[in-house]
């Protein structure tokens, strides 16, 4: 007989000898199983949970680079809502979301519908439209500043051919946010397109065949089959983009520095300036919590909207 069997027999009898063998239940809850998740949980707690709690705590205190001062209750929040620039930055952020999100969703849907075919041309365009998404914000803003910059920018050059002056996207307070929005749409368009494409590909072909047999024309097919089957994805895309665009920072900081005269300053840039330029950490923390709540509302809307749809 082979050793292996013998050895397993030995263990076998030793566990019979009355030592309290662990329960054989392979599915039982055991502490040592937690060892697999422990390394991640360490970072989760120290880098996410703890800072989150500390941030909330900070927002109720006077704090600067020299340390955390006394408890001030809601004073930081009161200061925040008394600060014209903060309120302006909240307004700017909402304005920016309004500028970008509908455009991203509709353009993404249009491109997905146009490029949802198995040809090489379509594949080429898909790849091209998505390529800008992999660039970093620095490169994106560099590109668009050199487009918008007066006198020798791309836009100025093109307008120059017609002897007109290009709109001053970066220096006109009324246009600054629009300029940032254009660069952002250029940067972020790939993701909505891809999400719509994968939704379209999940619609079973039989449904279209059935519709064709029912003599539906293309517009009817689009309205009664395609649109309903991507409704969920549409909600998803809109809410992902809302959450994403709420966090506008790099583009504004690099293209306009929030100017002119704070006309393009979003919440995150406000937080950055307050916390890391003026080192008013308590105030910055309070502004962060406001942003957190706004994003949480959007995330919850996503959860409930997609969930209720799923049950139908």
């Amino acid at each position: 007989m082979v050793e292996a069997v013998v050895s397993s027999r030995e263990e076998f009898s030793s566990s019979l000898a009355g030592h309290k063998a662990p329960p054989a239940n392979v599915n039982a809850a055991q502490w040592r199983n937690a060892l697999f998740v422990a390394p991640y949980l360490f970072f989760f707690v120290t880098m996410l949970v703890f800072p989150l709690v500390w941030g909330i705590w900070l927002s109720f205190h006077k704090a600067d680079t020299f340390g955390v001062g006394k408890f001030v209750g809601l004073a930081n929040y009161a200061r925040l809502f008394g600060d014209r620039i903060f309120l302006l930055s909240v307004g700017n952020t909402f304005y920016f979301v309004l500028l970008t999100v509908p455009a991203l969703a509709l353009l993404g849907l249009f491109l997905a519908l146009a490029l949802n075919r198995q040809t090489r041309t379509a594949a080429f365009f898909r790849a091209a439209y998505f390529s800008s998404s992999v660039l970093s914000v620095t490169i994106v803003t560099l590109i668009w500043r050199i487009v918008f910059v007066p006198d020798f920018g791309f836009l100025a050059t093109v307008y120059g051919w017609f002897d007109t002056k290009a709109p001053a996207f970066l220096s006109d307070p009324n246009l600054a946010m629009i300029g940032i929005a254009i660069a952002t749409i250029w940067w972020c368009l790939g993701l909505p397109m891809m999400l719509f494409l994968s939704a379209l590909q999940q619609v079973p072909a039989e449904i279209y065949e059935a519709a064709a047999l029912d003599n539906a024309n293309r517009w009817q097919t689009f309205r009664s089959i395609t649109l309903p089957s991507i409704k969920r994805t549409f909600i998803l895309v809109v809410l992902i983009q809302v959450v994403l665009q709420f966090q506008l920072f790099g583009q504004a900081r690099l293209m306009t520095q929030g100017g002119p005269n704070n006309a393009s300053k979003p919440i995150v840039l406000y937080i950055y300036d307050v916390a890391f330029k003026r080192w008013d950490l308590g105030l910055g923390a309070a502004a962060s919590e406001i942003l957190f709540i706004l994003i949480l509302i959007a995330a919850m809307a996503q959860y409930f909207l997609t969930r209720n749809r799923g049950e139908n």
């Binding site: 009898s13 566990s15 054989a24 239940n25 392979v26 599915n27 039982a28």
Partner: peptide, 20 residues
């Protein structure tokens, strides 16, 4: 699967506490 009550043995030796 664990055994909630009772015993299983092979050749007279209980196995229901042994890992698979």
């Amino acid at each position: 699967e664990s055994v909630d009550e009772g015993t299983i043995s092979i050749n007279g030796a209980r196995i229901d506490n042994l890992p698979p």
